[in-house]
């Protein structure tokens, strides 16, 4: 074990971690607002990535295809919330288990639909980052550096949006206290839909960043969503700040564990290990916040 390979494993762990960070934040955003876990988050991201693939195949320049895909994903997420999720919450006897079953159903539907449209063979997906760009090195190739960069920029924008804009404040309020939000004239239903749109948008970025590395097929996000869950739980499922940090930690942990301990075939087991460990030892996650309440 040389220092170089160790460093390489850590850094490429961070690169993979950026994918998990984005997916974990998407999961946390929805969980915080409605206490639902969207098991279909990864498949929605995969579907969006296929849209980008089709656009690129039609000759649309990469970054324009990227932006169109973000817009598509946002609308897609809003539409899923306004139709299926809203219908679900109006069911007379819906429980949390009903939601779980419906979201797993969505997972299967999106997976199958993508297979129907685009087939199950691996497809090459372009990277927007030049293979020989100056920021590449022996430790990280340009695409991996780009993944980290894009993720950090997007996370920054998302947090600034929630922290500094009126709409962001309204969305946080709707998630924390729907009833008081309604009394403040906030249209809570639409805030939840916007949250779904933003989550789908984040997921699509993870998908588009993952695809050049993993190749594109309907099962693109199967592993990523698992690591994303581990990351969200590790960071604290109700803490949007913890989710990305959890993502990077899981990325490094899984890479190091794969390289030195369990081997690459058992890497996903590590994610499950993280999930179990968090649930057993610290269910609120590393950064699970407790709201201070005085009565």
């Amino acid at each position: 074990m040389t220092v170089q390979t160790f460093l390489h494993q850590v850094l490429s762990g961070l690169a993979d971690g950026s994918l998990y960070a984005a997916i974990a934040l998407a999961l946390v955003m929805i969980f915080k607002a409605t206490h639902q876990v969207n098991f279909a988050q990864g498949e929605m991201a995969m579907f969006s990535t296929f849209v980008a693939y089709t656009l690129c195949g039609a000759g649309v320049p990469y970054w324009i295809a990227f932006l169109i895909t973000l817009a598509f994903s946002f609308v897609f997420g809003v539409a899923v919330q306004r139709t299926i999720v809203q219908w679900l919450t109006r069911l007379p006897h819906a429980s949390e288990l009903t939601a779980v079953v419906v979201f797993i159903g969505l997972l299967v539907v999106f997976n199958g639909t993508a297979g129907l449209i685009w087939g199950y063979t691996n497809k090459e997906f372009p990277s927007p980052f030049d293979q020989k760009a100056w920021y590449g090195s022996t430790y990280l190739n340009p695409h991996e550096v780009g993944m980290i960069g894009v993720t950090l920029i997007v996370l920054g924008i998302v947090f600034a949006f929630f922290r500094f804009t009126r709409l962001g404040l309204a969305m946080r309020a709707a998630a924390e206290n729907p009833q008081s939000s309604r009394l403040a004239g906030i249209r809570v239903g639409w805030m939840l839909a916007l949250g779904w749109g933003l989550a789908a948008l984040l997921g699509s970025i993870a998908g588009m960043m993952a695809a050049p590395k993993l190749f594109l097929d309907p099962n693109l996000m199967g592993g990523v969503i698992l690591y994303g869950f581990a990351a969200a739980l590790l960071g604290g499922i109700d803490n949007p700040w913890g989710a990305p940090i959890g993502g990077f930690i899981v990325g490094v942990l899984v890479n190091l564990g794969g390289a030195y301990v369990v081997g690459s075939h058992l890497q996903q087991t590590l994610a499950l290990g993280v999930i179990v460990a968090v649930l057993v030892f610290k269910p609120s996650g590393l950064f699970g916040r407790t709201v201070v309440v005085r009565v």
Binding site: R172, A173, E176, N177, Q179, S180
Partner: peptide, 10 residues
């Protein structure tokens, strides 16, 4: 409202 409806974490 009854219970004051404060947004506690904000």
């Amino acid at each position: 409202p009854e219970g004051r409806g404060t947004f506690l974490s904000l």
